[in-house]
Amino acid sequence: MDSDYRLTERPGLGMATIMARKGIQPAVIGAVLGFLPPDGPERAADARLALIGTGPGTWLALAETPEADWVTQLANKLNGLASVSDQSGSYVVLRIAGSGARETLQRGVFIDLHPAVFRSGSAATTVIEHIGVVLWQLDDVPTFEIATFRSFASNIRHWFELAAAS
């Protein structure tokens, strides 16, 4: 197995759940945000904000360099269009990059990660060995990131250790 990959943690990200109000289409939200939120399990981003599709009309928003009250600002911007919940404390985000990243992740997730199926910009909410994860691919290195609930973080790190050992 190709186990050549680097695992790093991405602290300090701002995160929030955005849920569109009833009948509000992604394009309407996109008009406010300045880019179109993905209408499926994909990632779209501008320089400051990335949106990961996690469900119909639902996105996990990630801010690289969040200001202290960025969630409030976001909620105000989307007032009447979407509900916004701060999730900055909820997740730990790990970055997995390198030629062995895909094969390692495939050991854990039961969705097809073949480059023809899951590519740069793809995203999925799924499970690695009983641990819920949101997974997305950033580039063709390939680089992946996974967000996992903070309370489970030590378990997912342990899983990566085991996967690396075998």
Binding site: A20, A82, S83, Q87, S90, F149, S151
Partner: peptide, 13 residues
């Protein structure tokens, strides 16, 4: 109903 719900169990200590 126009209502959204999201788990924030992990968000708050």
């Amino acid at each position: 109903l126009d209502v959204q719900a999201t788990s924030v169990t992990e968000q708050w200590s």
